[in-house]
Design a protein around this nucleic acid. Sequence first.
DNA 1: GTGGTCTAGACCACG
DNA 2: GTGGTCTAGACCACC
Lengths: 125, 125, 125, 125
Amino acid sequence: MIVIDYQDRTPIYEQIVERVQRLVIKGVLAPDTQLPSVRNLAMELSINPNTIQKAYAILEQQGFIYPIKGRGNFIAPNPDGGLKKKQQEFYEKLKDTVAYAIDLKIEQEDFVAQVQKYYEEAMHD
Amino acid sequence: MIVIDYQDRTPIYEQIVERVQRLVIKGVLAPDTQLPSVRNLAMELSINPNTIQKAYAILEQQGFIYPIKGRGNFIAPNPDGGLKKKQQEFYEKLKDTVAYAIDLKIEQEDFVAQVQKYYEEAMHD
Amino acid sequence: MIVIDYQDRTPIYEQIVERVQRLVIKGVLAPDTQLPSVRNLAMELSINPNTIQKAYAILEQQGFIYPIKGRGNFIAPNPDGGLKKKQQEFYEKLKDTVAYAIDLKIEQEDFVAQVQKYYEEAMHD
Amino acid sequence: MIVIDYQDRTPIYEQIVERVQRLVIKGVLAPDTQLPSVRNLAMELSINPNTIQKAYAILEQQGFIYPIKGRGNFIAPNPDGGLKKKQQEFYEKLKDTVAYAIDLKIEQEDFVAQVQKYYEEAMHD
DNA sequence: GTGGTCTAGACCACG
DNA sequence: GTGGTCTAGACCACC
């Protein structure tokens, strides 16, 4: 369920955070689903438990999960609050992406065409 | 010409590298133009010369600039080699961007519309 | 494993880079092997850690090694990509070598004979 | 007659030294031929006169040229003394070249074939 | 513990 | 004056 890319330069705990966020937003992880325990996940990924702990702490602080003492961590009921916020953030980043594309002398038509191609590729999966 | 954002978490030397890369690609810096000397730029940005040195070393290694000892650093004659490479890299990243957009349940139409909007905004500048 | 010649005029960091490159190409260092830590190697060679850092940074940028923060540097899985590139570079340099030999009035036969002699010497080790 | 490559990392004065050495060894520059004056050559190459001065000083110290006060610098009568020495140096370097080739897993046959090819190419010029 | 970034200050070769 | 290398020592993020 959770995969890590060691070649990737982004910190492991951040990879875990993003991974869980995406799974929640996509609806793969339903509310109140139990997450793997810190120690189990650490074993499975052969990673330091501290790293998992840090990821879970961030997820909790962002309202994506909630802990029950002695039981474990669970997906929080997420009334789309996270989604819209993430979408806004995304559009902000997209602005920079377009600006960069223009610097690279990429035409609007080429850009849009490529986006549509990628959308279709993704839909066929 | 070269500005640094100290708030930004990305390393200073990397900011300088990207800044120069963009200026070269956009054609603002013509081939054989002399860059500010390591010491001068360091003074101007109130930064340690070593940091500038590091940035220049990377730019040299990437073929964007070439040094002449005792004279200074100069923009390399760049036969668009850099540009096409950068464009390919860009399209690779765009793929991830689209995948992320799909996860965020952003429709293709909305995505494209936003891109076109940003393009037009940029053109009016 | 890694030795430095202080008499040599070539920079220390470059000596280290070449040394590791050769060990990788020769297959002495298998993929995912851990390199000595920056600080350890610095101690061992009684050199400043920054110098090691510089060498490792170059090796990373060339795709010979990859770092995992908080863990160390490791040999990259190198699908012979490095080897062929190095061979091409070598043949380029060889061209200059031959041109120089001709200037020195060295006959083709003598040149070839000497090469064969050196090859055989190396094989007997 | 004398050309300089600014892209080349080797110092300019060294380039000049090597250039003259080769021309002498190849016999292009006969003994007692007058070299361009320091100032003239500096102008021609748009280079600092000190650099030329340094190159001439080295050439004189190596016995390739001799100065006559108030007249200029001239090619020394070179009874092949330089040539044999250079050839020996060359064979020394060749040893390292072969060692490196072996590290790169280049077969003896390929090496020799390439050398012969380069020799023939050079002869057809 | 690890790698990564940065500063301060020195020395050298080159022009 | 220029770039290039190196040292010493500090701080940070990550594991």
